[in-house]
Design a protein around this nucleic acid. Structure first.
Lengths: 153, 153
DNA sequence: CTTAAAATGGACTCGTTCGGTCGGATATCC
DNA sequence: GGATATCCGACCGAACGAGTCCATTTTAAG
């Protein structure tokens, strides 16, 4: 299914929200959670991970909260997902981790890794800023949508 | 983490194997399972799904087994994965299925769906035949260029 | 200085899903 | 008719993800 985790969803939602309301100061987790009906405690954990990944700045205390650590345009969807779920892997094994019963006899590793790289590219090509502005496509110059063409930046 | 299921792995392994040995006749599940140390019963179920998805032909009886239903070049990795895990979705919700607590307030749906389409394209761009020949890059079909470099390491 | 509002962090529960198993039915060839 | 296959549904157990609870620390406000 290749579905992304709910935590990653929440992270993207939050990042988008913070990007859209960057003008206002720090935004508390509570407020974020209420905006999207997300369990506050859980969102808090997600936000903490984003802080540790340097994507957010936090500031505690009575009027504390979270804010983007850098311009939304410089943060990609891939950054956010990897901050939450760790390095993005399509296969159980990776360059480093050979822990898979079939590793020795596996012959589809390389092509799958290439596919993984293309997925990462797709995720890296969309920035949080684009999530915020959204509202329908940035139309791909050529008419057709098929290939993974990345023209941006 | 966007990892694909083990069943999907097994399916791809099997498809590749069948593509590589298409010359020989029907290949029993048992033989396939032993080749890759996959639990036979489990692989059997995977193969059955592939049959139902019309990607394989099966033939029971004493010299029965499985074989590709059409040329390996015409079967994509996306076909195989979707046959096993169902329609590929990155988000909990889809065009049809709005079952997600945040659906109403969700504002990242559209961009994520676009990303999903690009992932599907990436999976659709690789055929089972390419898995079988593999051994480093197959130059992308004429015209379209794969944008982001896959060169690494 | 006190207090309240916030982030931080760990440990824990709970439910679902996934990987895997079992048993039996059906088809085909010798 | 028997051996070897696919086929199919039901089942189980462990792992993982989502969510909860609680205790601590930090910081601004009053």
């Amino acid at each position: 299914m290749l579905r992304l985790s709910k935590k990653a969803d929440y992270a993207l939602l939050a990042m988008r929200h913070l990007a859209a309301h960057a003008d206002r100061g720090a935004m508390p987790a509570r407020e974020l959670a209420e905006s999207y009906d997300i369990p506050a405690e859980l969102l808090a954990k997600v936000l903490q991970k984003l802080v540790r990944a340097k994507l957010l700045d936090s500031h505690q205390g009575i009027r504390g909260g979270y804010g983007l650590s850098r311009p939304a345009a410089s943060i990609s969807v891939a950054d956010v997902i990897q901050a939450i779920d760790g390095p993005l892997t399509v296969t159980a094994c990776s360059d480093l981790d050979h822990s898979c019963d079939q590793y020795a006899k596996c012959n589809i590793r390389d092509p799958l890794w290439r596919i993984k790289d293309r997925i990462v590219s797709a995720l890296a090509a969309t920035s949080v800023a684009e999530l915020a502005t959204d509202m329908a496509a940035i139309p791909p110059p050529t008419g057709i949508t098929v290939p993974v063409s990345v023209v941006r930046k």
